[in-house]
Design a binder for these strands. Structure first.
Length: 269
DNA sequence: ATAGTCACCTGAGCGC
DNA sequence: TGCGCTCAGGTGACTA
């Protein structure tokens, strides 16, 4: 999927095409993705106030609340013109009065779409989320305190949305490389200094990826159908057996939890 | 409370 | 060409 940078890229891509436009038609072709999709009729005629992001959720703010959309592992949004034929896995169309259609495609159906009235943050999917990684609430002191007595691998720890949101499998490996920390290290054993470094690394990695328009591994494209270019800046992800750009040592792959992690056994301790 | 595993679903790539 | 297997960017639910 879409990790945070891809979601942000999508947000920026769709915003100018739907902001201040009135929702005039909704077509739900697939009644449930990860969760059932139930869009109340009251949404019709409502004007898009803004499109925001919380964690990896896109929040399409309408007048009485917001649509909460998650892209799952394989979801994407694009803007098409009214009347354009829907293809395979095009599950939902939201049509606006300017003729634009926001089309939600998701082959694996791990995505989701909900509507929540104000206050939107009270939705059960949002209310227990940790801080945004790019916000001041996420800092070295915070991470250091939270990691006390935790035995979980640091990589899984930073991928826990109750600790910090938006850090997915690619950027977790990348940030740990930049902070010189092995993905398997017990979270509780990461020093205060390393915690501070890790926070910086997570921020930098995400920000650079947003600038590059996200990472395209297989199928991610932005709302105009173009790929992201951060893949060319990946130091370890997907580079099993290839030489580390810093020291030349072969990158290793390990499984932490169910997910693949990549690290340089020489640079990362 | 925490750590680990399973489940949801489709498609791509590989070896045979 | 086709079959069977493994893997994939997420995350809530479940178990121990």
């Amino acid at each position: 999927m879409p990790e945070l940078p891809e979601v942000e890229t999508t947000r920026l891509g769709i915003l100018p095409h739907i902001k201040n436009c009135s929702l005039c038609r909704m077509e739900v072709r697939t009644p449930r993705l990860r969760w059932p999709i139930e869009l109340p009729a009251e949404l019709k005629g409502q004007v898009v106030q803004d499109v925001k992001r919380r964690a990896k959720y896109l929040l399409i703010h309408l007048e009485t609340g917001a649509l909460i959309l998650h892209l799952g592992m394989s979801g994407s949004l694009k803007i098409v013109k009214r009347g354009s034929n829907a293809g395979k896995h095009d599950h939902v169309d939201l049509e606006f009065d300017n003729g634009n259609v926001l089309r939600f495609n998701d082959p694996r159906k791990f995505g989701s779409l909900h509507f929540q009235k104000h206050p939107v943050e009270s939705h059960w999917l949002l209310k227990n989320l940790g801080p945004e990684p790019l916000s001041p609430h996420f800092n070295g002191t915070y991470l250091f305190e939270r990691r006390r007595n935790r035995k979980i691998a640091i990589k899984n720890f930073i991928m826990d949305a109750k600790i910090v949101v938006g850090v997915g499998n690619i950027y977790a490996s990348e940030a740990l490389f930049r902070a010189d920390i092995r993905p398997n290290r017990a979270a509780g054993l990461v020093s205060q200094k390393k915690c501070a470094n890790l926070v910086k690394a997570i921020r930098q990695t995400l920000q650079e990826a947003i600038q590059a328009g996200g990472t395209t591994l297989r199928d991610f494209t932005n709302s105009e159908g173009k790929p992201g270019y951060f893949g060319q800046q990946l130091n370890v992800y997907g580079r099993d057996g290839e030489p580390c750009y810093h020291c030349g040592t072969a990158i290793k792959m390990v499984k932490t939890g169910q997910r693949s992690s990549f690290y340089c056994p020489s640079c990362q301790k």
